[in-house]
């Protein structure tokens, strides 16, 4: 499965980038996130509940941030597995400073999905992924609003 998209954040690039390194912010933004623990500066452990059509299951796995070029770009590597299969993915995220205290986030990525999630859920995965991204960005917007405006 390939993913691609962009989102406009109403905050300067540094602030947005920082938020992406904050497990509390990410953990709160991802729907179904049950646990997110920072292992070190660039490694996280997470438990995530996913529901795709008839398939609903918990996935546990690791999230690593690599090739970090603050505040411009970062690569996310995800590996998770659970009762309903496995997900392995790489996401490339870029933060573009638009100069007016807004930041355009652009992402592309590829995920390898296996097990029940693929064999029964694949038809819905694209739309579930899209809706997840939408929710994540909406939540991050709110977090950002609080943090940025408070400052």
């Amino acid at each position: 499965m390939k993913v691609e998209g962009e989102h406009l954040f109403k905050a300067p690039r540094e602030v947005v980038y920082e938020m992406f390194n904050d497990p509390d912010a990410l953990g709160a933004a991802v729907p179904g996130m049950q646990k997110m623990i920072k292992l070190d500066e660039s490694h996280y452990e997470a438990v995530l509940g996913i529901r795709v059509g008839p398939v609903s299951a918990n996935f546990s796995g690791n999230l690593s941030l690599t090739d970090e070029v603050p505040p411009e770009s970062v690569t996310l590597v995800i590996e998770g597995k659970g009762g309903a299969g496995f997900v392995k993915g790489v996401g490339y995220v870029k933060f573009e400073d638009l100069g007016d205290e807004t930041t355009l986030l652009k992402y592309t990525g590829e995920a390898n999905i296996g097990g029940t999630l693929a064999s029964v859920g694949q038809r819905m995965i694209d739309s579930v992924a899209k809706s997840m991204f939408k929710t994540v960005f909406e939540k991050l917007d709110k977090i950002l609003e609080e943090r940025w405006q408070k400052n």
């Binding site: 693929a118 064999s119 694949q122």
Partner: peptide, 14 residues
Amino acid sequence: YDENGQLLTASFMD
């Protein structure tokens, strides 16, 4: 089957 050998049609929905 996808390129990873995952069967994408394992129910009568698909």
